[in-house]
């Protein structure tokens, strides 16, 4: 038992389903010091997301599981998301999540973070934005960049599938040049927006571009980004999670696609500001990483 909000009253224990009793007994929360949280615990602990309604083999669902497994303190984390495929999974997560209007996610997260810091000055509340490329790079670009300019202490994760997938396949700012989709038959005429470079320029202290092909790498990046956002300033992760349906792949081909792109459009990009680097060294020495 790790956290009070999941402590079932003994009077109701006999009527509660097993999955909730498991959540109480076997989920890894930050207060559970005996067994620290991480990717390695995924096979034998209760996960914060088990069921979802995405397509079979969707890399996004895997990436979200890695992200959730890596949260340093899930019970004190609020995730803000935006409309898109990810928003189909959010109602299933056993955490606080807020669905914002399309594109507004960083503005909403800013408000939540500021209020939480005022309301709970003694607690460390992590606010994380998790949205797709349409919300982050296109429609919400203004809000995203403005939150970086203002140096808000939030972590922004973009699940970049390079397309508006759940509305039928329209090109987005993150679509690579020349790509043809069902609703973009002429192919995109402009280059992919390198959001990770924009984020660095706009003032993010920890920026990464990567795919979700390696769970441990995703988990490490998420943990570091959240720790930096707590103390130093905004952080941004751009994670490639291809829409296998829109690019014509089968359920078992998502991982291969991500591995291929590790060497191409999503070749690793990492920026860590000197302050963030210093802070991460300190965190490592304290055993937080």
């Amino acid at each position: 038992m790790a956290i009070d909000i999941y402590k079932i009253n003994p009077e109701f224990r006999d009527i509660m389903p097993k999955e909730i009793i498991d959540l109480e007994e076997n989920a890894t929360w930050a207060q559970n010091r005996i067994k620290p949280r991480g990717i390695k615990e995924m096979p034998d602990t209760k996960e914060i997301l088990e069921e979802h309604s995405l397509c079979a083999g969707c890399p996004e669902s895997a990436a979200l599981r890695y992200v959730l497994a890596a949260l340093p303190c899930p019970e004190e984390t609020i995730i803000v998301n935006s409309t898109g495929c990810t928003s189909l999974m959010f109602p299933h997560i056993a955490l606080h999540t807020v669905h914002s209007l399309f594109g507004n996610q960083n503005a909403v997260a800013t408000g939540i973070k500021r209020v939480l810091d005022w309301r709970f000055p003694d607690k460390q509340k992590d606010v994380m934005v998790l949205a797709g490329d349409g919300a982050t790079v296109d429609i919400g670009l203004d809000y995203t960049l403005q939150s970086f300019f203002r140096q808000e202490n939030i972590t922004t994760i973009c699940f970049d599938n390079e397309v508006y997938a759940n509305t039928g396949g329209q090109e987005s700012g993150a679509t690579p040049k020349g790509q043809v989709f069902k609703m973009a038959p002429l192919g995109k005429k402009f280059e992919k927006v390198k959001m990770w470079e924009l984020a660095t320029t706009a003032g993010c202290h920890y920026t990464m571009n990567m795919t979700a092909s390696a769970p441990k790498a995703v988990a490490k990046a998420v943990r570091e980004a959240i720790l930096v956002a707590r103390e130093i300033g905004p952080t941004f992760l751009n994670i490639y999670t291809p829409c296998i349906l829109e690019i014509g792949l089968s359920a078992n081909e998502g991982l291969g696609e991500m591995k291929d792109q590790d060497k191409d459009r999503f070749a690793s990009y990492k920026f860590v500001s000197p302050e963030a680097e210093e802070y991460l060294k300190k965190c490592k020495a304290e055993g937080k990483l």
């Binding site: 909000i5 009253n9 109701f12 509660m16």
Partner: peptide
Amino acid sequence: PGPQVLYGYNEEAKKKATLIK
């Protein structure tokens, strides 16, 4: 019974659980 009484997050919730039973 909903979450506000199923989980023992404060003394009132614990007391209500006994009474609901």
